[in-house]
């Protein structure tokens, strides 16, 4: 068989450091979306909990265990990042590994960068660690999760990786230029 060369979505684009901020790729080895069928959410959540130690997240929240991060990504749907889930009977399970570009923006000024691109207030009092939002970054649909006080994780579709890096880099340069 032909030996194929695996490339991450942001290969050749990241990492970048601008001002006091760093933008780096954070490619998960596996990403799987799960959407429990009607009336099955409790059972699916229990199955996840027994495997990973965390269940199905409530809206706008992300849950972290030592093996995976499970992030709410929309009405009745969540993304399991890090490891593939066990066989789940009561949910639509879709392997989305390689389909998403995942980056982490960290450092002083990260909130200011996102404030230029995202129409949601992501400052700390209302958007704390493990809070997540489905929203826009420029004209792109993204999922944004706060990892800690200075770090955000941003997921966009893989086909948008270059645009994502361009938009964020431009905003980082503009914020850094203000000193």
């Amino acid at each position: 068989m032909v030996k194929l060369i695996e490339k991450t979505p942001c290969a050749g684009l990241l990492p970048r450091s601008i001002g006091l901020m760093t933008l780096a790729e954070d490619a998960y080895p596996a990403m799987t979306s799960i959407a429990p069928y009607q009336g099955q959410s409790r059972q699916v959540s229990a199955a996840l909990k027994s495997t990973f130690g965390v269940g199905f997240p409530s809206p706008n929240r992300s849950l972290l265990s030592d093996r995976v991060r499970i992030t709410w990504i929309g009405q009745g749907a969540a993304m399991i990042c890090g490891e593939a889930p066990p066989t789940l009977t009561g949910a639509a399970v879709t392997d989305q590994s390689d389909a998403w570009a995942v980056v982490r923006l960290t450092g002083k000024g990260a909130e200011d960068v996102l404030a230029r691109l995202v129409p949601v207030d992501l400052r700390r009092p209302q958007f704390r660690s493990n809070h997540t939002a489905r929203t826009l970054l420029g004209h792109m649909h993204v999922s944004i999760t706060r990892i800690d006080a200075k770090t955000f994780e941003i997921m966009a579709m893989r086909s948008m990786a270059q645009t994502l890096v361009h938009e964020l880099s431009q905003a980082m340069e503009n914020v850094a230029a203000r000193g």
Partner: peptide, 11 residues
């Protein structure tokens, strides 16, 4: 009206 939160949760 009906609206869809297309750039958000999809609801």
């Amino acid at each position: 009206d009906l609206w869809q939160h297309e750039a958000g949760c999809g609801a």
